[in-house]
Write a protein that binds this DNA or RNA. Structure first.
Lengths: 297, 297
DNA sequence: TCCATTCTCTGACCTTAGTCAGAGAAATCC
DNA sequence: GGATTTCTCTGACTAAGGTCAGAGAATGGA
């Protein structure tokens, strides 16, 4: 733990928390409790189902019900039974609600501008650049990893992204029907596992394991979204997969990879994988790696 | 208002508020209401008077009283009448309170570290650098300007800083007893005004006006602290002084300055001051400027 | 000495933001 | 067709974080 760096981060935390908190609450509240403003905002232009709203904002059903009643009394939203299923209720903004949302939007803009406005023009650009950098790098620490069902739309999307990436990068292109397959059922317990990395719920990376009993497990489908690279996600994903493998009784992990995937190869090497003799006949592979897992790692 | 920049600032606000808020509350609360933790922290190693504590934290007297009682019941602080004035009460940490503060400190360190920890080492440095930049530039928007009594210790300190700066920069050094004086009473209403810029209560700049009835007012004592330069404070200070001058019925402001003060000269020129013939015999001056004030400016 | 002020405490009250345990209606499963 | 599940609402309750109006003691100034 780097003490000087920690001191700077704490100073940053204090300054920004104060600055953002003070302004946002006073300015965006509009005399209304913040919970109502947040809900109003979340209903948005397109309306939403109450259950979906509750899930997004993490509200208790009783609490959500009362917040919506209050907004309805203020004439900002209209709640009515959904057409398809009369149990679920559909919330929509009234014209007054739309106007109020627009006002909140303008106010949030003004809060943002109040950070920039006092600065000379060139410093404004510096501040924005630094904020973009902080934003991006902070997001890395909010990424969550989890083993998921490989048949869901999100999982399929990740795997498609992975295929697209390979197709772009391999000198020969990539055809998923050639070479060694990994069907969805092979990536589900107990045959295997698919781990997905999510940023604010959006998938930004994946990686999979195929178990082979006492024989080495295979590592497959390692992919990190283009806009989330350079944040160390690949390494964390690999570590999570190894942890999961150890927990499943795996002793050795092996993988094959293509020579064009330089960052991946560097990642494997620096994570303790050593290159071994070809152990399968994957047509797209140039390198084969293996690692003996240990509890501590 | 630059829409693209505003969008980036808003994204930054959202990310950091979420990240800092979520972690800090859960982690620093220690099962205790946050108000108590904040108060405990503010009492600090040296103890404090209750009224001072209230002022710093902006608490109601009744509320503060109850928070302190609760902390006392937990054995973390000791409240007793102050020696000098039996109305005011002095708060001090008990040994348990000192230990608890140290624990809070360690936790705040861990929160800070949790931002850096998931990142690869080189990105950690990038994040810290960007945070330092944001921290510094955001502070600019928290600076407040106000006309103050020139006889206070803070005001005297600012003027001394100004003299020291001149003494370092003038080729000939600077002796405040030579040249045209501006005594404290000349900078007080109705003869003049001293404006001080403060960052978190600490003075970081000053500037003064001397009124001469219908004749042009004089601008004096423009100074910005070394560590707050490059944030556009000089320009804002000048604008505030001009606003104050207009409100006091001033039509024209003039000033003299030394050729070594290049940034100041550039500021005057770009703020609408034009160079005029020498209008006094200030021995340290090389340039004389004048500006006709207008309501809108 | 007396009056006004300062500082703290107490009691009464308030809002926000929840949580929890049902109840009732609609939909789905078997 | 009946049982179970899903979704929403209501009522009762809680904690945190405050506000406001005095009361009482100590102090300072005329």
């Amino acid at each position: 733990m780097d003490a000087a760096a920690v001191r700077k981060v704490r100073s940053f935390n204090r300054t920004t928390a104060e600055r953002i908190g003070a302004l946002s609450d006073g300015f965006l509240g509009r005399g209304r409790p913040m919970g109502e403003s947040r809900t109003l905002w979340e209903v948005g232009q397109d309306g939403a189902e109450v259950r979906e709203l509750r899930a997004r904002l993490g509200l208790d059903s009783g609490y959500a019900s009362r917040v919506l009643q209050s907004l309805e009394r203020q004439g900002l939203v209209k709640v009515r039974p959904s057409g398809a299923d009369a149990r679920v209720r559909q919330v929509e903004l009234t014209p007054a609600g739309v106007a109020e949302c627009a006002e909140l939007d303008r106010r949030a803009d003004r809060v943002a501008w109040s950070f920039l406005e006092p600065l000379p023009v060139d410093k404004r650009a510096n501040l924005v650049n630094a904020m973009v950098e902080v934003d991006r790098l902070l997001q890395a620490s909010t990424v969550v990893f989890g083993v998921e069902d490989p048949t869901t739309a999100d999982a399929q999307w990740c795997i498609q992204q992975y295929f697209d990436e390979l197709n772009q990068r391999f000198e020969t292109g990539f055809d998923p029907t050639r070479g060694i397959q990994a069907e969805a059922h092979e990536l589900m317990a107990p045959a295997g596992a698919l781990m997905i990395a999510r940023l604010r719920g959006r998938p930004v990376g994946c990686g999979a394991l195929k178990f082979h009993g006492r024989a080495p497990a295979e590592l497959k489908r390692m992919w990190v979204s283009r806009d989330a690279r350079g944040l160390g996600l690949g390494r964390r994903l690999l570590a999570e997969l190894e942890r999961h493998a150890i927990a499943s009784g795996v002793k050795v992990v092996r993988l094959e990879t293509n020579r064009t995937l330089k960052e991946a190869i560097a990642l494997y090497r620096s994570s303790g994988y050593r290159e071994v003799q070809r152990f399968n006949d994957e047509p797209y592979a140039h390198h084969w790696f293996e690692k003996r897992l240990r509890k501590g790692s």
